[in-house]
Protein backbone atom coordinates (compact mmCIF):
# COMPACT_ATOMS: atom_id res chain seq x y z
CA UNK A 1 0.00 0.00 0.00
CA UNK A 2 2.82 2.30 0.85
CA UNK A 3 4.33 2.57 -2.60
CA UNK A 4 5.02 6.21 -3.17
CA UNK A 5 4.05 8.00 -6.30
CA UNK A 6 6.08 10.78 -7.76
CA UNK A 7 3.06 12.96 -7.34
CA UNK A 8 2.30 13.10 -3.66
CA UNK A 9 -1.12 14.50 -4.34
CA UNK A 10 -2.10 11.24 -6.03
CA UNK A 11 -1.28 9.36 -2.83
CA UNK A 12 -3.33 11.88 -0.96
CA UNK A 13 -6.33 11.40 -3.27
CA UNK A 14 -6.13 7.62 -2.98
CA UNK A 15 -5.96 7.85 0.78
CA UNK A 16 -8.97 10.12 0.96
CA UNK A 17 -10.88 7.69 -1.21
CA UNK A 18 -10.10 4.65 0.94
CA UNK A 19 -10.76 6.60 4.11
CA UNK A 20 -14.21 7.39 2.83
CA UNK A 21 -14.81 3.69 2.27
CA UNK A 22 -13.81 3.22 5.90
CA UNK A 23 -16.37 5.82 6.93
CA UNK A 24 -19.07 4.14 4.87
CA UNK A 25 -18.14 0.75 6.31
CA UNK A 26 -18.44 2.06 9.85
CA UNK A 27 -21.82 3.54 9.06
CA UNK A 28 -23.10 0.35 7.46
CA UNK A 29 -21.89 -1.75 10.39
CA UNK A 30 -23.59 0.60 12.82
CA UNK A 31 -26.86 0.64 10.87
CA UNK A 32 -27.17 -3.14 10.80
CA UNK A 33 -26.28 -3.36 14.47
CA UNK A 34 -28.85 -0.75 15.44
CA UNK A 35 -31.55 -2.15 13.16
CA UNK A 36 -31.29 -5.56 14.81
CA UNK A 37 -31.08 -3.97 18.26
CA UNK A 38 -34.23 -1.98 17.49
CA UNK A 39 -35.96 -5.14 16.35
CA UNK A 40 -35.03 -7.16 19.42
CA UNK A 41 -35.91 -4.44 21.90
CA UNK A 42 -38.89 -3.09 19.96
CA UNK A 43 -37.36 0.38 19.87
CA UNK A 44 -39.26 2.35 17.22
CA UNK A 45 -37.23 5.55 17.75
CA UNK A 46 -33.95 3.75 17.05
CA UNK A 47 -35.50 2.17 13.97
CA UNK A 48 -36.50 5.60 12.70
CA UNK A 49 -32.95 6.85 13.17
CA UNK A 50 -31.58 3.91 11.16
CA UNK A 51 -34.02 4.64 8.32
CA UNK A 52 -32.83 8.24 8.23
CA UNK A 53 -29.16 7.26 8.34
CA UNK A 54 -29.45 5.41 5.08
CA UNK A 55 -29.48 8.68 3.13
CA UNK A 56 -25.90 9.28 4.29
CA UNK A 57 -24.71 6.04 2.73
CA UNK A 58 -26.47 6.78 -0.56
CA UNK A 59 -24.83 10.19 -0.63
CA UNK A 60 -21.40 8.77 0.17
CA UNK A 61 -21.66 6.13 -2.51
CA UNK A 62 -22.40 8.78 -5.10
CA UNK A 63 -19.53 10.91 -3.81
CA UNK A 64 -17.04 8.04 -3.95
CA UNK A 65 -18.18 7.13 -7.43
CA UNK A 66 -17.66 10.67 -8.69
CA UNK A 67 -14.33 11.04 -6.97
CA UNK A 68 -13.11 7.75 -8.41
CA UNK A 69 -14.11 8.77 -11.92
CA UNK A 70 -12.25 12.08 -11.53
CA UNK A 71 -9.11 10.27 -10.36
CA UNK A 72 -9.28 7.82 -13.24
CA UNK A 73 -9.75 10.64 -15.76
CA UNK A 74 -7.03 12.82 -14.31
CA UNK A 75 -4.32 10.28 -13.42
CA UNK A 76 -5.01 7.42 -15.78
CA UNK A 77 -3.88 4.89 -13.17
CA UNK A 78 -2.56 1.43 -14.03
CA UNK A 79 -2.37 -1.96 -12.34
CA UNK A 80 -2.54 -1.79 -8.53
CA UNK A 81 -3.77 1.81 -8.49
CA UNK A 82 -6.51 1.06 -10.97
CA UNK A 83 -7.54 -2.01 -8.98
CA UNK A 84 -7.61 0.10 -5.85
CA UNK A 85 -9.94 2.66 -7.42
CA UNK A 86 -12.25 0.23 -9.18
CA UNK A 87 -12.31 -1.81 -5.97
CA UNK A 88 -13.38 1.25 -4.03
CA UNK A 89 -16.31 1.77 -6.41
CA UNK A 90 -17.40 -1.83 -6.03
CA UNK A 91 -17.02 -1.90 -2.27
CA UNK A 92 -18.99 1.31 -1.89
CA UNK A 93 -21.77 -0.29 -3.93
CA UNK A 94 -21.86 -3.32 -1.64
CA UNK A 95 -21.82 -1.15 1.46
CA UNK A 96 -24.68 0.92 0.14
CA UNK A 97 -26.70 -2.26 -0.39
CA UNK A 98 -25.89 -3.37 3.15
CA UNK A 99 -27.26 -0.05 4.36
CA UNK A 100 -30.45 -0.62 2.36
CA UNK A 101 -30.88 -4.05 3.90
CA UNK A 102 -30.36 -2.59 7.37
CA UNK A 103 -32.95 0.04 6.58
CA UNK A 104 -35.36 -2.62 5.45
CA UNK A 105 -34.99 -4.43 8.78
CA UNK A 106 -35.61 -1.18 10.61
CA UNK A 107 -38.76 -0.57 8.59
CA UNK A 108 -40.24 -3.83 9.81
CA UNK A 109 -39.66 -3.06 13.49
CA UNK A 110 -43.04 -1.43 14.01
CA UNK A 111 -44.93 -4.25 12.33
CA UNK A 112 -43.10 -6.95 14.27
CA UNK A 113 -43.28 -5.34 17.67
CA UNK A 114 -46.85 -4.09 17.49
CA UNK A 115 -47.79 -6.94 19.75
CA UNK A 116 -45.10 -8.04 22.18
CA UNK A 117 -43.39 -11.17 20.88
CA UNK A 118 -41.76 -13.89 22.96
CA UNK A 119 -37.99 -13.54 23.19
CA UNK A 120 -37.36 -16.95 21.64
CA UNK A 121 -38.36 -15.49 18.26
CA UNK A 122 -35.44 -13.07 18.37
CA UNK A 123 -32.75 -15.23 19.90
CA UNK A 124 -31.81 -16.87 16.62
CA UNK A 125 -32.00 -13.59 14.74
CA UNK A 126 -29.54 -11.76 16.94
CA UNK A 127 -27.15 -14.73 16.76
CA UNK A 128 -27.44 -14.60 12.97
CA UNK A 129 -26.75 -10.87 12.87
CA UNK A 130 -23.73 -11.32 15.15
CA UNK A 131 -22.32 -13.76 12.63
CA UNK A 132 -22.95 -11.41 9.72
CA UNK A 133 -21.50 -8.43 11.59
CA UNK A 134 -18.37 -10.38 12.53
CA UNK A 135 -17.99 -11.30 8.89
CA UNK A 136 -18.38 -7.69 7.78
CA UNK A 137 -15.91 -6.47 10.39
CA UNK A 138 -13.29 -9.04 9.39
CA UNK A 139 -13.65 -8.14 5.75
CA UNK A 140 -13.32 -4.42 6.36
CA UNK A 141 -10.35 -5.02 8.65
CA UNK A 142 -8.75 -7.00 5.83
CA UNK A 143 -9.39 -4.04 3.53
CA UNK A 144 -7.84 -1.67 6.07
CA UNK A 145 -4.65 -3.70 6.37
CA UNK A 146 -4.57 -4.79 2.73
CA UNK A 147 -3.99 -8.40 3.72
CA UNK A 148 -5.46 -11.43 2.06
CA UNK A 149 -4.59 -13.82 4.90
CA UNK A 150 -7.97 -13.96 6.51
CA UNK A 151 -10.05 -13.82 3.37
CA UNK A 152 -10.37 -17.57 3.03
CA UNK A 153 -12.02 -17.83 6.46
CA UNK A 154 -14.70 -15.43 5.34
CA UNK A 155 -16.17 -17.99 3.01
CA UNK A 156 -16.34 -20.58 5.75
CA UNK A 157 -18.25 -18.10 7.82
CA UNK A 158 -20.60 -17.38 4.96
CA UNK A 159 -21.43 -21.06 4.94
CA UNK A 160 -22.12 -20.85 8.66
CA UNK A 161 -24.47 -17.92 8.08
CA UNK A 162 -26.33 -19.82 5.38
CA UNK A 163 -26.75 -22.86 7.61
CA UNK A 164 -27.96 -20.68 10.46
CA UNK A 165 -30.43 -18.94 8.16
CA UNK A 166 -31.85 -22.24 6.93
CA UNK A 167 -32.31 -23.39 10.50
CA UNK A 168 -33.95 -20.11 11.50
CA UNK A 169 -36.31 -20.32 8.54
CA UNK A 170 -37.42 -23.74 9.71
CA UNK A 171 -37.90 -22.54 13.26
CA UNK A 172 -40.02 -19.54 12.27
CA UNK A 173 -42.12 -21.82 10.10
CA UNK A 174 -42.87 -24.01 13.11
CA UNK A 175 -43.97 -21.01 15.15
CA UNK A 176 -46.36 -19.99 12.39
CA UNK A 177 -47.85 -23.45 12.34
CA UNK A 178 -48.19 -23.55 16.10
CA UNK A 179 -50.28 -20.42 16.25
CA UNK A 180 -51.63 -18.46 13.28
CA UNK A 181 -51.38 -15.26 15.30
CA UNK A 182 -47.59 -15.55 14.94
CA UNK A 183 -47.79 -15.36 11.17
CA UNK A 184 -47.50 -11.58 10.80
CA UNK A 185 -44.45 -11.23 13.03
CA UNK A 186 -42.77 -14.38 11.78
CA UNK A 187 -43.17 -13.46 8.12
CA UNK A 188 -41.49 -10.14 8.79
CA UNK A 189 -38.80 -11.93 10.75
CA UNK A 190 -38.18 -14.31 7.86
CA UNK A 191 -37.57 -11.28 5.66
CA UNK A 192 -35.26 -9.78 8.29
CA UNK A 193 -33.32 -13.03 8.47
CA UNK A 194 -33.07 -13.11 4.70
CA UNK A 195 -31.79 -9.53 4.73
CA UNK A 196 -29.10 -10.45 7.23
CA UNK A 197 -28.16 -13.44 5.13
CA UNK A 198 -27.86 -11.09 2.13
CA UNK A 199 -25.59 -8.83 4.21
CA UNK A 200 -23.32 -11.85 4.66
CA UNK A 201 -23.30 -12.31 0.88
CA UNK A 202 -22.33 -8.68 0.32
CA UNK A 203 -19.54 -9.06 2.86
CA UNK A 204 -18.31 -12.05 0.86
CA UNK A 205 -18.43 -9.91 -2.29
CA UNK A 206 -16.32 -7.28 -0.56
CA UNK A 207 -13.90 -10.01 0.50
CA UNK A 208 -13.51 -11.02 -3.13
CA UNK A 209 -12.90 -7.41 -4.16
CA UNK A 210 -10.29 -6.97 -1.40
CA UNK A 211 -8.58 -10.15 -2.50
CA UNK A 212 -8.46 -8.81 -6.03
CA UNK A 213 -7.10 -5.44 -4.91
CA UNK A 214 -4.35 -7.03 -2.84
CA UNK A 215 -3.24 -9.91 -5.03
CA UNK A 216 -4.40 -8.94 -8.50
CA UNK A 217 -5.95 -12.38 -8.94
CA UNK A 218 -9.47 -13.60 -8.32
CA UNK A 219 -10.41 -15.91 -5.47
CA UNK A 220 -10.81 -19.51 -6.67
CA UNK A 221 -14.36 -20.14 -7.89
CA UNK A 222 -17.04 -20.32 -5.29
CA UNK A 223 -18.39 -23.59 -4.04
CA UNK A 224 -22.07 -24.43 -4.47
CA UNK A 225 -24.42 -22.30 -2.37
CA UNK A 226 -25.27 -23.78 0.99
CA UNK A 227 -28.53 -21.94 1.66
CA UNK A 228 -31.00 -24.77 1.61
CA UNK A 229 -34.05 -22.83 2.70
CA UNK A 230 -35.54 -23.12 -0.76
CA UNK A 231 -35.97 -26.83 -0.08
CA UNK A 232 -37.59 -26.45 3.33
CA UNK A 233 -41.25 -27.39 3.45
CA UNK A 234 -43.62 -27.23 6.38
CA UNK A 235 -43.91 -30.71 7.87
CA UNK A 236 -47.42 -31.94 7.25
CA UNK A 237 -47.42 -34.37 10.13
CA UNK A 238 -45.48 -34.76 13.32
CA UNK A 239 -42.37 -36.71 12.51
CA UNK A 240 -40.90 -39.09 14.98
Amino acid sequence: MQSQHIMRSFDEELRLLTNQIGGMGGYAERMVEQAVAALVSGDAALAKKVIEDDAFLDEKEREIGEKAVVIIAKRQPMAADLREIVGAIRISGDLERIGDLGKNIAKRVVAVTEARQPTRLFRGLSALSDLALTQLKEVLDAYASHSADKISFVRDRDEEIDAMYTSLFRELLTYMMEDPRNITACTHLVFCAKNIERIGDHATNIAETVYHIVTGTVLPPERPKEDKSHKVVAPTQQEN
Binding site: R15, T18, G23, G25, G26, L140, D141, A144, S145, H146
Partner: peptide, 20 residues
Protein backbone atom coordinates in the same frame (compact mmCIF):
# COMPACT_ATOMS: atom_id res chain seq x y z
CA UNK B 1 -7.25 -5.00 17.99
CA UNK B 2 -4.99 -7.36 16.10
CA UNK B 3 -1.67 -6.63 14.46
CA UNK B 4 -1.62 -3.56 12.27
CA UNK B 5 1.11 -2.70 9.80
CA UNK B 6 2.64 0.78 9.91
CA UNK B 7 1.12 2.96 7.23
CA UNK B 8 -2.43 1.61 7.63
CA UNK B 9 -4.97 4.39 7.86
CA UNK B 10 -6.52 4.69 11.33
CA UNK B 11 -9.82 5.81 9.88
CA UNK B 12 -10.01 2.53 8.00
CA UNK B 13 -9.18 0.49 11.06
CA UNK B 14 -11.59 2.26 13.42
CA UNK B 15 -14.62 2.84 11.29
CA UNK B 16 -17.36 3.53 13.83
CA UNK B 17 -18.90 6.87 12.81
CA UNK B 18 -17.96 8.68 16.02
CA UNK B 19 -14.36 7.40 15.84
CA UNK B 20 -14.14 8.35 12.19
Amino acid sequence: FGPIAPGVSLQLKFRAPEMH
